[in-house]
Computed example of a mutant assay.
Amino acid sequence: MSISSGAVPALGHSLDISSTQPTPFGRLVRVELRKTWDTRAGFWLLLSIAALTAVVMVIQLSVVVVQDITVTYNDFLTSTNFSVAVLLPILGILLLTSEWSQRTAMVTFSLEPRRPLVIVSKLVVGVGLALAAVLVALVLATVCNALYGPLSGDTVTWDASFAQTGAFVLLQLIGMLTGFAFAALLLNSPAAIVIYMVYSFVLPGLFSLGAALIGWFEDLQPWIDFNFAQGPLVDATMTGKDWAHFATSGFIWLVLPLCIGVWRVLRAEVK
């Protein structure tokens, strides 16, 4: 069968890649969001954040009712900080390191060679999931505080101010972003998780010990210990000096690792 001469230009025109449109940013975000629960690790991590937060709230409600302890809405909200704050950074880590640990970076950066957009889309997904986790925590704290009144017979107190709620949201975003920064810096899930755990649970103790034993280090600690600098933020009692401590230590432990990590991702060889 022969092909007419008129069919060839038509075929060539249909295969003209110069008219191919770039991938919309919204589609990149949807793809990265889908990746968070497509894998076993991502699915169970998302489920664990919600389940662990709920378990912590139920245990707290049971204890305060049985022991006849007076609590407020802010107490319930504060108790969710531990479960959410521990797991959200791991989510931030897996968002980025999964490309290398699961060896999908070649496919991702081949389909979308604009690496900055891929990084930003992952960051948008991380922020969105962090806000979703915060919303779950707020709902659970509201439910538990509402149940506390009938179960204990005490007056229900709704004492969380806008500043306290905003500080709670900011703390969770900082935790996720710190995990994301360590992930970009190391591009390895186990290493990033270990380093984050050391940063969160070992370094604060070492810094406190140094402040207790060395006089001049006590004055230096707020400027270099990001966890310590976030203390007043938990109580929403930040002053101008506290914000200076927060900004300086945050630059050391969040901004600087994030910038170096993003630079590394942009230049990393994909194998």
Results as ranks from 00 to 15, higher is better:
3 I>S: 09
3 I>W: 03
7 A>P: 07
14 S>M: 12
14 S>K: 08
15 L>W: 03
16 D>Q: 07
17 I>L: 13
19 S>Y: 00
20 T>M: 11
21 Q>Y: 11
23 T>K: 07
30 R>V: 13
32 E>M: 06
37 W>L: 01
39 T>H: 04
42 G>N: 10
46 L>T: 06
46 L>I: 12
46 L>K: 06
47 L>G: 11
52 L>V: 14
53 T>Q: 07
55 V>M: 09
59 I>S: 08
61 L>N: 02
64 V>Q: 07
65 V>C: 09
66 V>P: 00
74 N>D: 14
79 S>D: 11
79 S>K: 08
81 N>M: 12
87 L>R: 08
90 I>P: 05
98 S>V: 03
99 E>I: 00
100 W>I: 08
104 T>R: 07
105 A>P: 00
105 A>R: 01
106 M>C: 02
107 V>D: 11
112 E>L: 13
113 P>F: 09
116 P>V: 02
120 V>W: 08
121 S>R: 03
126 G>L: 11
129 L>F: 12
132 A>C: 02
132 A>R: 02
132 A>I: 15
138 L>M: 14
144 C>G: 08
148 Y>C: 05
150 P>W: 08
154 D>T: 15
154 D>N: 15
160 A>S: 14
165 T>R: 11
175 G>F: 03
177 L>H: 02
178 T>H: 05
182 F>C: 05
182 F>Q: 05
184 A>W: 04
185 L>M: 15
186 L>K: 03
190 P>C: 10
194 V>H: 11
196 Y>K: 05
201 F>P: 00
203 L>T: 03
210 G>F: 07
213 L>V: 09
214 I>S: 09
214 I>E: 02
217 F>Q: 02
227 N>Y: 06
230 Q>I: 00
231 G>R: 12
232 P>K: 03
232 P>F: 04
235 D>M: 06
240 G>H: 05
241 K>T: 13
242 D>E: 13
244 A>I: 15
244 A>S: 05
246 F>R: 08
246 F>C: 07
250 G>T: 02
251 F>S: 14
252 I>R: 08
256 L>S: 12
258 L>K: 06
263 W>F: 13
264 R>D: 13
269 E>I: 12
269 E>D: 13
269 E>Y: 01
